[in-house]
Write a protein that binds this DNA or RNA. Structure first.
Length: 592
RNA sequence: GUCCCUGUAGCUUAACGGACAAAGUACUGGGCUUCGAACCCAGUGAUGGGGGUUCGAUUCCCUCCAGGGACACCA
């Protein structure tokens, strides 16, 4: 690649092993690549940075690199490299030729990516949408680098939340949807049951009057449980050991409804999971691991429970098996890790969740390290920010949530309004599916344009734009390109046209100078797990094209050569937009 | 109380320690008999406060302030 060649040249001129870093200057007037080695070196040598820069440049043999137009020394002592028009055009042809394979890497890593992770019996909310968008995008980024990716989904089909929901189902049996009711209805019902069960359940810290965790450590067991709380705890145990027929029946029904509903959501969102893992399976394995760990001194008994003493590792202690003998989320996750590895001998296991469990995961990985250092080392926890409503935190416990489905439907409504007012060219019978594609694109883009890990304040008006930097803007630009390409003969034998004599307008050059960066952006984005870099890049490309489009004609260009070139430019732009959107998990459409 | 994360135009966000801090949105004004105006152009407007390290700090360190999260049997 270019950067390597540039580095070789600079290294040679330098006769020094200093680190040489290249970047794209923010302002294109400063070239296509630049490096600050002269500045860094000047400090070490105690010389004037500009003089150092000049002396480096004087040692260059620019003609040796055919893609290099010129090198300049600028500002405090930057070396700015300008690429040739010929190189840009060659890349544009490459894009048009390789299509979706453009920028593909040769990596051979095996990566397992766990994401979305909704819990049966609970709502599928916006946070799951975020996890799904991030996980799907990261999976695709890795795939483009050549990795073999397995997408997996880990679902909590046992645990206190299930018991709460089942208790709610028992109380609301008269409102139970019929079998023929829609999945949405069923999911809604279950969510309400969970919220109800949760509202009556009294967690330990609520039972206590006041108190720091230290107090609860000594006194929580003495507290009286209410009848409802007691019943929910009984259901919880019954779910694990399948000892209650009635509970089993509700459990199977609720679980099936939830999973069917989730599958429908994954399909709408464009994710296909390779494997589904369940807590009911990992619970048994996890419990065994913890029990063996007690013998090895990794875990300790405390207050009737089994804990991992995180303080020893600079973290905090957590309960892995509770005093009723049931494994907590922690133990289950511990059981999941070896199961995953058995199924797929990965080089890397990514787990994508919300950032509220970031400290919890540190404890978990510390415990895993004691049990199986190899697995711990290969596991990486990536967290995305919380999605919050302007009024505050969203919680399925209190019922203060927006479900994924509600959000999609609301955005779709807005998309349909615009389709009407803008006289969409989409045929009537295809408008529904177009609206769906656009709505999901809008949602995904608005989530992925922000760097992972940051909270997203979700506001329909403010954060979900259908204009400006948004999914629909990108899809629209793609449609615009395609509609031009449809109007003319497809370009063939591009390799025979050199465009060497063609003089380019400013807007064309700007676009060319962006397009060739796609492979780099995709690679960096994959390396750092940062989809937002792709999101920002593709917006720049689309903006550059729209700028060009507003000022110049493609089909009515001045000469045949210019027209051909602009068709190539249009085709390459469409391809880059499509490839980038693919990496974000967003579909393109031919008309909108 | 302890630990972690986050403070950038009115709002939502960008910016490997680098060159005049970049966009979108909102607001103001302009642009369709010409390839799709979900578009384009112009203007107004910002690094929470105080120290420090550095040739250079939105970025690193300290401190204060503000918001969020975690801190024993939920996930």
């Amino acid at each position: 690649m270019i950067v390597k060649e540039l580095e070789k040249m600079v290294r040679k001129a330098l006769s020094d092993d200093a680190e040489i870093v290249f970047e794209h200057p923010e302002n294109m007037e400063y070239g296509d690549y630049s490096t600050n080695v002269a500045l860094v070196l000047a400090k070490q040598l105690g010389k004037n940075p500009r003089e150092v820069a000049e002396s480096i440049v004087s040692n260059f043999d620019i003609r040796a690199l055919d893609f290099l137009e010129k090198v300049e020394v600028a500002g405090p002592g930057f070396l700015n490299f300008f690429l040739t028009k010929k190189y840009f055009i060659r890349e544009a042809k490459e894009i048009a030729g390789k299509k979706e394979k453009y920028g593909r890497g040769e990596g051979k890593k095996k990566v397992m990516v766990e994401f979305t992770d909704p819990n049966p019996f609970k709502e599928f909310h916006i946070g799951h949408l975020y996890s799904n968008a991030a996980g799907e995008s990261i999976s695709r980024l890795l795939e483009l680098q050549g990795a073999e990716v397995k997408r997996v989904n880990y679902q909590g089909d046992v645990g206190l939340h299930v018991a709460k929901a089942i208790w709610g189902m028992q109380q609301s049996s008269h409102q139970m949807p019929e079998e023929k009711a829609s999945l949405s209805k069923k999911a809604q019902f279950l969510g309400a049951c969970y919220a109800y069960g949760n509202s009556v359940y009294e967690p330990v810290d609520k039972i206590l009057l006041v108190g720091s965790p230290k107090d609860s450590r000594d006194s929580w067991q003495k507290q009286e449980e209410s009848d409802d709380t007691k019943r929910i705890n009984e259901i919880n145990t019954a779910v694990y050991d399948k000892s209650d027929k009635e509970v089993n029946r509700l459990y199977e029904q609720g679980k099936k409804w939830s999973l069917d509903y989730f599958k429908q959501m994954y399909e709408r969102l464009g994710t296909k999971f390779d494997t589904y893992y369940f807590e009911s399976d990992s619970a048994k394995i996890g419990k065994k691991i913890v029990e063996e760990g007690v013998k090895k001194g990794i875990f300790e008994k405390s207050q009737g429970a089994i804990i991992f003493p995180g303080e020893k590792y600079g973290l905090h202690s957590r309960v892995f098996i509770n005093s009723k003998g049931l494994p907590t989320y922690e133990a289950k996750e511990l059981g999941l890790a070896p199961t995953k590895y058995k199924d797929f001998q990965y080089d890397l296991s990514l787990i994508i969740t919300g950032n509220e469990i970031i400290d919890y995961f540190k404890v978990l990985l510390a415990a895993l390290k004691e049990i199986d250092p190899m697995l711990s080392e290969k596991t990486k926890h990536l967290s995305h920010g919380m999605v919050r409503l302007p009024e505050g935190k969203m919680s399925s416990r209190s019922g203060n949530i927006v479900t994924g489905e509600e959000l999609i439907d609301e955005v779709k409504r807005r998309v349909r309004d615009i389709m009407k007012s803008s006289e969409s060219e989409v045929a009537k019978e295809e408008q529904e599916s177009a609206a769906e594609t656009i709505a999901i694109g809008a949602i995904k883009y608005s989530l992925l344009r922000v760097s992972l890990g940051k909270d997203i304040i979700f506001d329909f008006e403010k954060s979900l734009s259908l204009q400006g930097e948004s999914g629909p803007y990108l899809q629209y630009t793609y449609v615009r390109c395609k509609s031009i390409l449809r109007e003319t003969e497809p370009l063939t034998k591009l390799s025979l046209v050199s465009f060497a004599k063609l003089s380019l307008v400013k807007e064309e050059v700007v676009l060319l100078r962006l397009l060739y960066r796609f492979p780099e952006v995709a690679r960096d984005s994959a390396k750092n797990f940062t989809p937002h870099m792709v999101a920002g890049f593709v917006f720049d490309v689309a903006q550059a094209y729209n700028n060009f489009y507003a000022k110049h004609r493609v089909l009515k260009a001045d000469t045949k050569e210019q027209k051909d070139f602009r068709l190539l430019l249009t085709s390459a732009t469409a391809q880059i937009i499509q490839n980038s959107l693919h990496l974000l998990g967003i579909k393109t459409l031919e008309q909108m």
